[in-house]
């Protein structure tokens, strides 16, 4: 049984607008798929050159 049927509830315009935006959800504001960025190649190369060398196995063990 609808126990609260006697109480009449009316939303305020702000509340109505809030559920309106939930009913009409826009698409997600995500970017398009990642694209290759050739200008980033130099940066990645610099990182590779500056990175520390691989650790070597200690001798004599």
């Amino acid at each position: 049984m609808l126990a609260q049927k006697t109480a009449r509830i009316i939303a305020t315009p702000a509340e109505a607008a809030a559920i309106g935006s939930m009913m009409v959800e826009p698409e997600a504001t995500v970017s398009d798929p990642p694209l290759p960025a050739p200008e980033a190649a130099g940066f990645i190369l610099a990182l590779l050159l500056m990175s520390p060398k691989e650790p070597k196995e200690p001798k004599g063990k």
Binding site: K5, I9, I10, A11, P13, A16, A17, G20, M23
Partner: peptide
């Protein structure tokens, strides 16, 4: 009755000035 009440409570859901 409950669904009808939801229409009473929110008669025009997209009513904001920016809609």
């Amino acid at each position: 009755a409950a669904v009808a009440r939801s229409f009473d409570a929110f008669p025009t859901p997209v009513a904001g000035p920016s809609a």
